[in-house]
Design a protein around this nucleic acid. Structure first.
Length: 301
DNA sequence: TGCATAATAT
DNA sequence: AATATTATGC
């Protein structure tokens, strides 16, 4: 394994567009009114057959193609006028699959860390995360995967020299790909050595949930919870981690039009917006004198 | 709750 | 068609 392997992530990170460069996620390509004026696309767009879901995961280009590439053009979209169909099942529609973005995952990790492995059970984690729309199942499932990941890590760090980027090791299956996600958030050391003989895991003095309960945050996962109207899939949030989140760009009811689905059109070369603006909040800067632990991105207040 | 397995998405 | 990621069932 060469250093490259251990650095790939860093590189990758650097290549990511900065928040300022990203098109504001909340910015719609075309304002609704304008759209209407042009008579394009009709929003109501019920065209959301239970099939394709959205996805925003940025690809993880190892080679990265950074060409300036000028294809910033968006296809005008397929505004397929949709024949009108128009009716959505409204009820009985299953919730769309949750997409674990780095931000979300980060929250997850923080919650687990703050709870201590001991109490880190789905229910609690979920509560701590207080992400609207997140279900216990979601967490449980993710937790399962996460534990597996941790296990893997322990396994290998266990004899390995400290640095484990766990990326290259192919063959062993150290990385299931999702590891990228997991890798996006620092894993609290303790997770790796729960063996705390005599010393239980939870070291956290206390983490008043209230701290994180602030205002429910605006984390996304809006899974149409209140009323089933339009089945909107989980929405990712991409707010600039840097300041504060705000606005849920999702539609909650009508008036939405297909939310701008940027994110996925990464035609070759255009990294488009990557919601990967993580970190920022809990910068675990274990370095000299800085706060080592910041809670959730409650940064604003 | 946790794990195994199914389902779904890309 | 295969693989990755999430949902469900036990």
């Amino acid at each position: 394994m060469r250093e490259e392997d251990s650095n790939w992530f860093a590189k990758w990170e650097e290549e990511l567009p900065k928040p300022e460069e990203l098109m504001p996620l909340s910015q719609t390509l075309i304002s609704p009114d304008l759209a209407i004026a042009f008579d394009i696309a009709n929003p109501t767009s019920p065209n959301n057959p239970p099939n394709k879901q959205q996805q925003q995961q940025t690809q993880i280009p190892q080679s990265s193609q950074q060409q300036p590439n000028s294809s910033a053009e968006f296809e005008s979209s397929e505004l397929n006028g949709l024949g009108g169909g128009g009716d959505e099942p409204a009820r009985t529609i299953k919730r769309p699959r949750l997409v674990w973005t780095p931000q979300l995952h980060k929250r997850f990790v923080d919650a687990v860390a703050h709870l201590g492995i001991k109490n880190a059970v789905p229910k609690t984690i979920m509560q701590l995360m207080s992400v609207d729309g997140l279900t216990r199942e979601n967490v449980a499932s993710h937790l399962q995967k996460y534990r597996l990941y941790l296990k893997r890590m322990q396994g290998l760090s266990n004899g390995g020299s400290g640095g484990n980027s766990g990326q290259s090791l192919s063959g062993a299956g150290v990385d299931s790909a999702m590891d990228n996600l997991f890798a996006s958030s620092p894993v609290p050391a303790h997770f790796l050595h729960p063996a705390g003989r005599g010393n239980p895991d939870q070291f956290l003095p206390f983490v008043p949930v209230s701290s994180m309960q602030h205002h429910n945050h605006h984390m996304g996962v809006v899974v149409g919870h209140h009323h089933p109207q339009v089945q909107q899939q989980y929405r990712q949030f991409g707010s600039p981690a840097n300041g504060h989140f705000d606005h849920h760009p999702f539609l909650s009811r009508q008036s939405q039009q297909q939310v701008q689905r940027m994110g996925t059109s990464v035609h070759n070369g255009s990294p488009v917006v990557s919601p990967y603006v993580d970190d920022v909040d809990s910068s675990a800067v274990p370095v000299n004198g800085r706060k080592v632990l910041t809670l959730f991105p409650t940064g604003d207040d």
